[in-house]
Computed example of a mutant assay.
Amino acid sequence: MAFAVGCALLTAIGRAGPFGAEHAFVIRYVSFAILFWIGWLGLMVLAWQGSGKTWSHAIRPLLVLTAVFALANGIHMTKKAVVVRERAVSFAALIRQQYPNVDAAVMSQAYEGRAAVAQPRLGQLRERRFAPFVQEEGTD
């Protein structure tokens, strides 16, 4: 749990300045949040096993609440991941269609402020068939 909190703090400190506080909530940082919940669940199970009746009656609702929060977090992150995927697929299709003269607005939205770096590298990505030039199965 301490490792997960430390990662969250370092991410917030490192990303808030250049990208804003909202960047800390990007979906790729979820794996550290999962570590926190695993640690919390482990502590709850240990506390449940090693205590008397009064303590176990207090721990059981916390354990259930933790499971509910973890489930809600999983559902929320799944929904967020679907949105991120749909956005990435649509931008990849636009970039493939417009390459080599990709619209500056599309590049800016797709690469969120890193368009100047991404534009010259598109040729290398295309040669190696990396994203955005990899098409999903079932598409032309």
Rank of each mutant, 00 (worst) to 15 (best):
Q98E: 13
G6L: 15
T54D: 06
V106H: 05
A8K: 03
S108M: 07
G50D: 06
L62Q: 04
N101K: 10
I75G: 02
R60I: 09
G123T: 08
F3D: 15
L43S: 06
I13P: 03
V82S: 08
V102I: 03
W55P: 06
L9E: 13
A24M: 13
S31V: 13
G74D: 02
L10I: 07
I38F: 08
H23N: 13
N101R: 04
L94T: 08
A4K: 00
L46V: 08
I95F: 03
A58D: 08
R28L: 15
E86R: 03
A12E: 12
S51Q: 05
L10D: 15
E127T: 05
A33P: 07
V82Q: 04
A47P: 01
I27W: 15
W37R: 07
A12I: 09
F69N: 15
A33D: 15
N101C: 05
E112K: 05
S56P: 03
F32P: 08
T139Y: 00
A104R: 12
G50A: 03
F36Y: 13
A67G: 14
L43D: 06
V82Y: 05
E137W: 10
R85W: 01
L71K: 03
A16I: 09
F69R: 11
A24Y: 05
R87Q: 06
G20D: 03
G42M: 07
R96D: 02
G42S: 07
R15C: 09
R128C: 04
Y29P: 01
A2T: 14
V134A: 14
V5N: 10
P132G: 05
L35I: 14
L62M: 15
A88Y: 00
R60N: 05
G113E: 02
G50K: 03
F36M: 09
G123W: 05
G138F: 03
D103S: 04
V64W: 12
F19S: 11
A8L: 13
